[in-house]
């Protein structure tokens, strides 16, 4: 490994279609947490200087377009007793990663499933699936179930347990 450099280019993503500065301000204002007042969208609207109807209309549009995935209570797994957090990583054939990723991503105990780049030779894994359990035994049992789904396509895997949460804040975006 070569020292002190950022490996693997971050992809250039085109600006999301249909997103303007007001949409970004709505996202920034709502993803940090809606105010706990009877009319929270009105409070957001006042902050931005538009109407509540406009906040709701734009939010609905972003939900329908998949820009906002959901609006709701974001649970903190650790505080709810899911103390074991295993990032499971899998080396599966590139030509099957999408098909397999969709199967693994649909499992009810997987909270995230992503195709990410390999960094050979040290990092052969291309499929990441986050698994939460009350303890490591529960995570291990789920890892065996994922391995069973993958069968021969599992050419190697690992589980990276978190030992410390050093920072966890909601996503903050600039305006």
């Amino acid at each position: 490994m070569r020292p002190a450099s950022a490996q693997a280019a971050v992809p250039r993503s085109p600006p999301a279609a249909g997103i303007d500065a007001i949409d970004r301000r709505i996202v920034a204002a709502t993803q940090a947490g809606l105010p706990r007042v009877p009319r929270p969208y009105h409070a957001v609207a006042d902050e931005i200087g538009i109407t509540a109807a406009e906040v709701m209309r734009r939010s609905r549009h972003m939900l329908d377009a998949g820009i906002i995935r959901r609006i709701g209570a974001v649970p903190n797994h650790y505080a709810l007793g899911y103390r074991a957090n295993g990032m499971t990583v899998w080396d599966v054939p590139d030509d099957r990663v999408r098909e397999l990723g969709r199967i693994i991503g649909a499992l009810d105990f997987v909270s995230h499933a992503y195709h990410r780049p390999r960094h050979p030779p040290d990092w052969p894994y291309n499929l990441f699936a986050m698994v939460h359990g009350r303890d490591r035994a529960e995570v291990e049992e789920k890892v065996r179930r994922i391995a069973a789904f993958l069968g021969d396509n599992d050419r190697g895997h690992d589980v990276l347990y978190s030992t410390r949460i050093l920072k966890k804040t909601g996503l903050r975006i600039g305006q």
């Binding site: 971050v10 997103i19 709502t30 972003m62 906002i68 209570a73």
Partner: peptide, 22 residues
């Protein structure tokens, strides 16, 4: 008590801004 980190929007990665795991 920390059971809910917030009530708000969950944004799809890389649609509003850019992000990466590192």
């Amino acid at each position: 008590r920390g059971a809910v980190s917030r009530v708000g929007a969950v944004v799809r990665p890389n649609t509003v801004g850019a992000s990466t795991l590192a």
